[in-house]
Design a protein around this nucleic acid. Sequence first.
DNA 1: CTGAAAGCGCTTACAG
DNA 2: CTGAAAGCGCTTACAG
Lengths: 346, 346
Amino acid sequence: MNSSPSPTKPARVTSFDVAERAGVNQSTVSRALAGSPQVTAATRDRVLAVAKELGYTIDQRASGLRTGRIDTVAVVILQRPEDKQSTGNPFYFELLGSICEAASERGLETLVSLQSETGALSGDYVKRGQADGTIVIGSARNSDAWQYFRELQQSEERLVFWGSPFEDARWVRSDNIAGGKLATRTLHQRGYRKIAFVGPLEAGPGQFAERFAGYREEIERLGHNPIQASSYPDGDRSAQGYHAARELLQQHGDIDAFFAASDRLAFGVLEYMQELEARIPDRFGLIGFDGMSAGTVCNPPLTTVAPELPEAAEALLTAAIDGQAPASQRVGVKLVERASVRAAPA
Amino acid sequence: MNSSPSPTKPARVTSFDVAERAGVNQSTVSRALAGSPQVTAATRDRVLAVAKELGYTIDQRASGLRTGRIDTVAVVILQRPEDKQSTGNPFYFELLGSICEAASERGLETLVSLQSETGALSGDYVKRGQADGTIVIGSARNSDAWQYFRELQQSEERLVFWGSPFEDARWVRSDNIAGGKLATRTLHQRGYRKIAFVGPLEAGPGQFAERFAGYREEIERLGHNPIQASSYPDGDRSAQGYHAARELLQQHGDIDAFFAASDRLAFGVLEYMQELEARIPDRFGLIGFDGMSAGTVCNPPLTTVAPELPEAAEALLTAAIDGQAPASQRVGVKLVERASVRAAPA
DNA sequence: CTGAAAGCGCTTACAG
DNA sequence: CTGAAAGCGCTTACAG
């Protein structure tokens, strides 16, 4: 009478169950499900039918224990300790989205870990058998965390960084120099004549510094001098952008365009422009960096330099999983035209 | 002479290695690392020291195979098929962030899967031994996908939905009715007198319909009639919001406020307002729903009703992992005041 | 082409 | 308090 599933046995269906029902050996079930050419089409079909009937599915823990592979990539997103509880930088989630998609196309799952506190850092997913490789992306400002991962890279081949502040590491980055040039050249082509750079040039060879280098190179090629703010407040990027725009305009009344080293900085610039009731793109041009989708909802929508996310995801995955990519690698950038820059002259 | 790690043996360190070096049995190592009270403090310390020295770490595949737990929650994010390659709805990533944090506090890892194509749906992470429970979040518009997961829920206890379009399912949702009332009441209190609802009321008892119900209830309590657009174009939420605002204003010239059923709809309304050069919040009030961080960069920043994300994450996790939460559950909402609504009268 | 068996690295009764 | 052993569910040489 009691045909309802007994509470004592949740009854995991194993390959032995399938084997018994299909009248073959368990090893044959394993081969059939793996699509081994060693097994007859007839046998395989029978096994597959039974497997489907019983709702059998390979246990990845057992499979992974045996093969050494777990078909998973771990992605750790480093946040600033202050970003705890807030959403952190949405750009990282956009990159994460691309990684998930690229991973899925390779038949990999994606394990995601948000980390911020120095004490709770953990990157040995490969050693723990939870992933075949690890990607670390995140804020260059959490330098304690980066230090930890940099050391980890000594002993772990399958670990790669996006946006790490170190040169001596395996990383993937935007082609920041090309991006800086592209933004600057675009602004100049659209008729802006005094183009300022917005972005704190923090410790070491960070991404902002590279974007500045591209800007500077292009500005000098055009026969001008680079212009940048003298200091930046602590706080979020938006506040920094706001203050920089104000300071720059106070000191150089003839500035007519800004290249912001990140979209979040650009949002701050935009905020100041709005306070000034300055018309964009007529009076001022503005280009950001990152291609964040939030830039579609600001007013005007933000023109920005965006890394090729699918390319970035591929490069990161290859480096993390295969573990034998070139030491470091840059991905291309493109201009995402929205509305904070005048149209090209006809 | 050849002391460099031989390429043939990547040499995984196991509990047997630790045991040998510490001069104990492997089972003692296991107990020591599990913090079992059965093991002497002295023994435990020795084992822990050796483990650290050798860089030993428990293999989760083996551990999970033995215990049946894997200490991981799977999160599948359903996207509209069209959203492939785009970023999809950023709100889901904000919720994902909260889930990751809550999971991490429970000592769980988070497996993330972006799914869109009907053929490639997969939710049996528990059966495959990859997770102890599964959370599905995502667009109600991908109804084929929801149908798949709804059926899966018949056979899988540890599966819970955020925002599913079905009533007969285990889900967690915002208290949409309270949220609709809150938005409407707020607009009325701030002096707006003709408040329209923006949002397509799609098939079945979706979240938008609940938000509308809350709006309607409050509007009627205030002695007014609900106002809504007659039709919505296909396309993204922003375009829908734009068209609804235009239609509403054409038909009801005296509208002075909008409650949009989602932030993305609200961004579309905002876009139309900008075209009109209508001043917000003076001429029109606007409240969205979701609490998306992108709402901080639009102009003016968007006042919105936000679900309590940490509470949502806790409820989802409890339902997914423990598998014995109430059949369905609502989480509280709050008003996030930004600048698209007038200040409260003094 | 299929079967019998070993073993991946753990946890946990079972003895002592 | 510690050890010896079984077993979680697979994959894959090894036989035949």
